[in-house]
Computed example of a mutant assay.
Amino acid sequence: MKKQLVKILPLVATAALLSFTACQKTEDEIETVDTETVESETLAEMEFNTMGDFVEEAGNEEALLNGRVAATSEAFPACATRTFNAETRTLTIDFGTTNCVCRDGRSRRGKIVAVFEGQRHTAGSSVTITLQDYYVNDMHFTGTKTKTYVNANEMNVVVRDARIVTPKGNLEWSAVRVVERIAGTDTRLLTDDIYQITGRSTGLNRRGIKFNTEIEQPLKLVMAQTCVRNFVAGLVRTTTENGHTMVLDYDPIGGEPCDKIAELTINNRSRRIELR
């Protein structure tokens, strides 16, 4: 529960007041740094997850990729194009050179390039995703994401050397994930799919502080068109190199609503936040 800071009366000694102010400033500064660490992790997690969604949806239109049937309306805006080179088994998603507003409200430009090995949804097959001049809300993303199928509904995912250049500084991120489709397995649509994600990650926040994360309760992603592209449930614990621990709860209200509300707990102080 968040602690309430008690107001100091005017008669308090000056020394005590200065001491209180210094402690409060230090605590607030620590919380700001820790909050930025969680924001860095969430930003990287969500966008690299979305890249995979784009590739999955675009791949459904290619018979040579053993695609499933896409719904009539998907995540791609009119300003994005998809091309497939059958010889190299390379899928390119091009958002153009000017900002292209997508269904999740984020503006993107540049290219997502995916190279496939084997048939999708088949054990041992894989897809490797790289980025070319790729920007999200004017932040520059680089890195490599590799997805390897364990079976039709489970994948091992590795993100390497991810880097995000933001106005507040640069951040780095690498992750190992297990992604499992837990609903929608009996249909050929994407929009009834639900995924759960487990794993861990490491990174460097925008202030140059190292951090590690562990997904303590599986992240849950609902692909329905009416659902915002944020996790509806899950618990992530983040620890920084200076020993601070933060917990992010994607379902603080309960009921797994499709919203942007989460709860961040730092040093036993909890507050609701709205994800970007």
Rank of each mutant, 00 (worst) to 15 (best):
M1Q: 06
Q4M: 10
A13V: 08
A13N: 15
L18W: 07
Q24K: 14
K25R: 10
E29D: 14
E29I: 12
I30E: 09
V38K: 07
V38R: 01
E39Q: 14
E39P: 07
T42Y: 09
T42S: 10
T42K: 10
T42H: 09
E45F: 08
M46L: 15
E47I: 15
F48W: 11
M51E: 14
G52C: 11
F54S: 09
E56D: 15
A58Q: 01
N60E: 11
N60Q: 10
N60T: 02
E62N: 00
N66P: 00
G67H: 05
R68V: 11
V69P: 06
A71L: 08
A71S: 13
A75I: 11
A78L: 12
C79Y: 01
T81A: 03
R82Q: 11
R82G: 05
R82A: 05
A86T: 03
T90K: 00
I93M: 05
F95W: 06
T97R: 11
C102A: 15
C102S: 14
R106V: 15
R108K: 15
V113R: 02
V113T: 10
A114P: 09
A114I: 03
Q119D: 11
T122D: 04
S125G: 02
T128S: 07
I129W: 07
Y134C: 09
N137R: 09
N137E: 10
T142R: 07
T142F: 03
K145W: 03
V150G: 02
E154T: 12
E154Y: 04
M155Y: 02
V157I: 14
R160N: 13
R160D: 11
D161E: 13
R163P: 10
I164G: 02
I164S: 13
I164K: 14
V165T: 13
V165G: 03
P167T: 02
G169S: 06
G169H: 06
L171E: 05
V176W: 07
R177C: 06
R181A: 08
T187S: 12
L189Y: 07
L190N: 13
L190P: 01
D192V: 06
D192F: 03
Y195S: 08
Q196M: 12
T198G: 06
R206K: 13
R206D: 03
I209Q: 13
T213H: 07
E216C: 03
Q217R: 14
L219A: 09
M223S: 12
C227I: 08
V228M: 14
N230C: 05
V232R: 04
T239G: 03
T239A: 11
E241D: 15
G243A: 08
G243H: 13
Y250L: 14
D251I: 00
D251N: 09
P252F: 01
D259K: 01
K260W: 01
K260G: 02
E263K: 01
L264C: 04
I266D: 00
R269F: 13
R272F: 10
